[in-house]
């Protein structure tokens, strides 16, 4: 069952076009949304939150168009946007009374547990918190919705490795329920590699691929060698090539490349870099 289904979203801006973006977020999964700055990740998440009006296409949450969701249904989507959006003048302990009056499914006890777990000082104003602590406050709020879907836009940026690990554990626990799912964009690809079941890669407003973590591991590999060795690879094996004055490397299809040359594991960073900076054969 798909919790979120993005169906051909197109949105034209003066200098940018989100072009026929489509992918799914299945229940019980974490979907990593990757791409360089300005690729269209935040715009896509905004479309999923009905914060922008696409020129065409639609977004469905549990099969229902997000534009027609009721207040209670919409509360089933928890989000942390790149800017946390909690009022600066409000103290951490005041967040729960405010959001309980705003979000019909609010769970105050859960919020208290999470703020304690994140060591958020209850008497500090949100504006006085560090970026990482603000992010934790935003995450605590998103996880206290009794939400089915979490949309996280760079939610782990600004967090130290220990806090990031705690957040990933929380997300992992969250998606154990088949009615829950997470769609997260992040530049910390290491986090995505740890937790994602699927990865969607967007480049210049277009989806390059939507693959499961297993598919990525099986399909992509790194080749490092000489021009001569590269030429010896089967024609369909080479996806992208990167040349520097001192080295030559290529992103290859593991199966098509065969076992003639040693191949290395391609990380998400590598895959992104090759697609964005690399050249075709």
């Amino acid at each position: 069952m798909d919790i979120l289904n993005i169906q051909g979203i197109t949105k034209q801006y003066p200098k940018f076009r989100l072009d026929n973006v489509r992918f799914r977020v299945p229940g019980g999964s974490v979907v990593g949304f990757i791409g360089e700055n300005g690729a269209g990740k935040t715009t896509t998440l905004k479309a999923a939150l009905n914060l922008i009006r696409p020129d065409s296409g639609k977004v469905e949450y549990f099969g229902k168009d997000v534009r027609t969701l009721s207040e209670r249904e919409k509360a089933g989507i928890g989000m942390v946007l790149d800017d946390v959006c909690l009022p600066d003048s409000v103290k951490v302990r005041e967040i729960s009374p405010i959001l309980s009056g705003l979000i019909p499914t609010w769970d105050g006890e859960r919020f208290s547990e999470l703020t304690a777990a994140f060591s958020l000082p209850p008497d500090s104003a949100v504006g006085a918190l560090s970026k990482g602590m603000k992010m934790k406050a935003g995450l605590a709020a998103a996880l206290s919705h009794r939400a089915n879907l979490l949309l996280l836009d760079e939610a782990t940026s600004g967090l130290d490795p220990v806090a990031r690990d705690e957040v990933l554990d929380l997300l992992y626990a969250f998606v154990k329920d088949e009615n829950h799912a997470v769609l997260m964009s992040s530049h910390i690809v290491e986090d995505l590699e740890k937790i994602c079941d699927y990865v969607v890669f967007i480049h210049e407003g277009r989806i390059v691929f939507e693959k499961s973590a297993d598919q990525l591991r099986e399909e992509f590999a790194l080749f490092k060698g000489s021009d001569e060795q590269l030429r010896a690879l089967p024609p369909g094996a080479v996806i992208r090539i990167r040349r520097t004055p001192f080295s030559l490397s290529a992103l290859v299809n593991r199966k098509a490349a065969g076992t003639r040359f040693p191949l290395e594991r391609a990380s998400l960073d590598d895959i992104m870099l090759f697609y964005i900076k690399g050249e075709s054969r």
Binding site: L49, L69, K74, L86, P87, L102
Partner: peptide, 18 residues
């Protein structure tokens, strides 16, 4: 102006508030 700075209206709308 405070709402704009804190992006509160965006948060409230994204949270499903009519």
């Amino acid at each position: 102006a405070a709402d704009e700075k804190e992006k509160w209206l965006k948060f409230a709308l994204a949270s499903g508030c009519p």
